[in-house]
Amino acid sequence: MVYVLGVNLPDRQLVKFALTQFYGIGHHTAARICARFQMHNTCKVRDLTPLQVTALASFLSSPKDSISPPRFPRAPPDFVPSTKTHQQLLQEFRAARVQREAENKRPEFLLRRRRDARILPDPLKSLTIEAELKQEIRENIAHQKMIGSYVGRRHAMALPVRGQTTQNNARTAKKLNRVERYS
């Protein structure tokens, strides 16, 4: 079992479903988080490396302060993997970087990332979970009660808020009328 920010994530569960154990993370947000940390759809919690668990915990603790992951260019459809060794690829990469710096050009994917960041802000930056989200909800309900809205009054009387039917609608209407008279 993995504990992340006080929440138990079962080992045999898929990561995208285990993340929904956090209050405030649904299936869609969990899928986005898995994509951000490059976890495939069938990755289980027990398959996570300690580095991934640490990165996930640091992101969930403060998503606003986290750094957006780099976007790498996608391979074209006709891409064939290289048979070169790691050392050869590393030398070629360093030579290309030196040449690019000499020309003072930035790679296209970096330019594209800056352009996309201006157009589409990162939706995970505004993620609030657990205690922060519960506190925000409590504040919203207290605000509704303070301004005396219909929703606030229903919260104060512990009645259904979103239009659910109660057992005795006449009794509920009398309670509301009584509250309105004394308000």
Rank of each mutant, 00 (worst) to 15 (best):
S68D: 12
R162H: 07
N169I: 11
H27Q: 12
R115N: 04
A170G: 03
H27R: 11
R100V: 05
T128D: 06
E130S: 13
I33T: 06
R74S: 10
T172A: 13
N41P: 15
Y182K: 12
K44D: 05
R154E: 01
G152A: 14
C43Q: 11
T20A: 03
R115I: 00
L56T: 00
I67N: 05
R138P: 02
S82C: 11
T166L: 13
E101W: 00
R100M: 15
K16D: 14
E130W: 07
K44Q: 14
R100L: 14
A55K: 13
D122P: 12
E132C: 02
L110Y: 07
T165R: 08
N169C: 05
G152V: 11
A170Q: 09
F59M: 08
L56G: 03
M39R: 02
N8L: 13
N41K: 12
D122N: 04
Q135H: 15
F22V: 15
L159D: 01
H143S: 09
A55I: 01
R153L: 15
Q91D: 06
V161D: 01
V15L: 10
V98Q: 12
A75H: 10
I129R: 02
F37V: 08
V15T: 07
D116N: 08
E92N: 05
F22M: 12
L111V: 11
N169Q: 03
T85Q: 03
S66P: 01
A142I: 05
N140W: 05
V53C: 10
R74M: 08
A156V: 04
I33L: 06
N177P: 00
P50Y: 00
